[in-house]
Simulated assay, not measured.
Amino acid sequence: MTDLKTRITEDVKTAMKAGEKDRLSVLRMLQAELKQREVVESTELTDAVVQSAVEKMIKQRRDAESQFRAGNRPDLADKEAAEIVVLMAYLPQQMTDAEVDALIVQAIAETGATTGKDMGKVMGWIKPKAQGKTDMGKLSGLIKAKLSA
C-alpha cells in the first residue's frame, strides 16, 4: 500500500470514530475511486495514481460547484466546496500565485516560446513541475495570456 493510500484509510477510521459524517462520505468516495482504479488497472496504486484520482475528483467538484452557483443553489455549491477542502489535504502543498508566475516565465524562457502556437512546448515543460501543485486549467489560461501579450 502507498503512503497516501494508507493515510486515507487511517483518516476514514478517524472520521468514523469522530462521527464526522460529511468528511467520512468524501473519504469513502475517494476510497471507491481508488478501488476502481486498482481493479481496472490491476496494479498496486502509487502515490502518483492516488494524487491523479484526487485531482480528478477535485476538478469534478469545482465544475459542479460553479454550475450550482450559476443555478442559484448555494447550499449544494457549499457542499461541493467543503468536499474540495477535504480532498485538497491529499495533494502536495499548493503553489502560490507568485510561484506559478515565476514558473511560467521560466518555462517560456527555457522553451523559447513566443506565440500561442508554442503552448504545447510550454505545457510539456511545466506539467511535471506543477502537476498536483496547482490547477492545471487555470495554469493553461495564464500561459495562454502570457504568450498572447
Score class of each variant (00 low, 15 high):
residue 120 G to E: 15
residue 2 T to Q: 10
residue 80 E to R: 14
residue 142 L to G: 02
residue 30 L to M: 12
residue 57 M to V: 11
residue 28 R to L: 12
residue 63 D to E: 15
residue 115 T to H: 07
residue 147 L to R: 05
residue 119 M to W: 06
residue 82 A to Q: 05
residue 20 E to V: 02
residue 117 K to W: 13
residue 35 K to T: 13
residue 26 V to N: 05
residue 121 K to S: 09
residue 112 G to V: 03
residue 143 I to W: 02
residue 89 A to N: 12
residue 66 S to G: 07
residue 32 A to I: 04
residue 22 D to V: 06
residue 61 R to E: 09
residue 118 D to M: 09
residue 77 A to V: 03
residue 54 V to Q: 03
residue 135 D to K: 07
residue 140 S to Y: 14
residue 33 E to Q: 12
residue 81 A to D: 01
residue 142 L to Q: 11
residue 33 E to R: 15
residue 29 M to T: 07
residue 90 Y to K: 01
residue 27 L to E: 00
residue 134 T to W: 02
residue 94 Q to V: 01
residue 11 D to E: 12
residue 81 A to E: 03
residue 88 M to L: 13
residue 149 A to N: 09
residue 48 A to Y: 02
residue 60 Q to Y: 07
residue 105 V to Y: 11
residue 30 L to N: 05
residue 79 K to W: 03
residue 17 K to F: 09
residue 39 V to W: 09
residue 53 A to L: 12
residue 107 A to L: 06
residue 61 R to A: 10
residue 109 A to G: 03
residue 52 S to Q: 11
residue 26 V to M: 09
residue 135 D to W: 05
residue 18 A to H: 04
residue 22 D to K: 08
residue 8 I to N: 02
residue 111 T to G: 01
residue 90 Y to H: 03
residue 71 G to V: 11
residue 106 Q to D: 14
residue 81 A to F: 01
residue 137 G to S: 14
residue 130 A to S: 04
residue 72 N to H: 14
residue 39 V to R: 14
residue 17 K to A: 15
residue 139 L to K: 05
residue 129 K to C: 00
residue 118 D to V: 09
residue 135 D to F: 06
residue 41 E to S: 11
residue 141 G to V: 06
residue 40 V to A: 10
residue 33 E to A: 10
residue 125 W to F: 06
residue 41 E to W: 10
residue 121 K to E: 03
residue 57 M to Q: 14
residue 134 T to H: 04
residue 96 T to L: 04
residue 87 L to D: 04
residue 109 A to P: 03
residue 92 P to T: 02
residue 68 F to I: 01
residue 14 T to K: 15
residue 91 L to C: 05
residue 84 I to S: 10
residue 5 K to C: 13
residue 114 T to W: 05
residue 66 S to A: 13
residue 137 G to P: 06
residue 19 G to H: 01
residue 59 K to P: 07
residue 33 E to P: 03
residue 30 L to C: 01
residue 86 V to I: 14
residue 122 V to Y: 06
residue 143 I to P: 00
residue 61 R to M: 11
residue 118 D to W: 10
residue 118 D to I: 07
residue 121 K to F: 01
residue 108 I to G: 02
residue 65 E to C: 07
residue 60 Q to S: 11
residue 37 R to L: 12
residue 90 Y to E: 06
residue 31 Q to Y: 01
residue 88 M to D: 14
residue 72 N to Y: 10
residue 37 R to V: 11
residue 42 S to P: 04
residue 135 D to M: 04
residue 31 Q to A: 02
residue 124 G to N: 00
residue 49 V to W: 05
residue 74 P to N: 04
residue 50 V to H: 04
residue 47 D to G: 08
residue 86 V to F: 08
residue 57 M to Y: 09
residue 86 V to P: 08
residue 55 E to M: 09
residue 79 K to F: 06
residue 51 Q to P: 00
residue 88 M to Q: 15
residue 31 Q to T: 06
residue 111 T to C: 01
residue 116 G to T: 11
residue 47 D to K: 00
residue 144 K to A: 05
residue 74 P to L: 03
residue 1 M to C: 10
residue 130 A to Q: 01
residue 147 L to S: 12
residue 36 Q to I: 08
residue 56 K to D: 10
residue 103 L to W: 00
residue 126 I to V: 12
residue 41 E to P: 04
residue 102 A to W: 01
residue 100 V to Y: 07
residue 44 E to W: 05
residue 81 A to P: 02
residue 46 T to S: 07
residue 105 V to N: 13
residue 17 K to D: 14
residue 57 M to C: 10
residue 148 S to K: 15
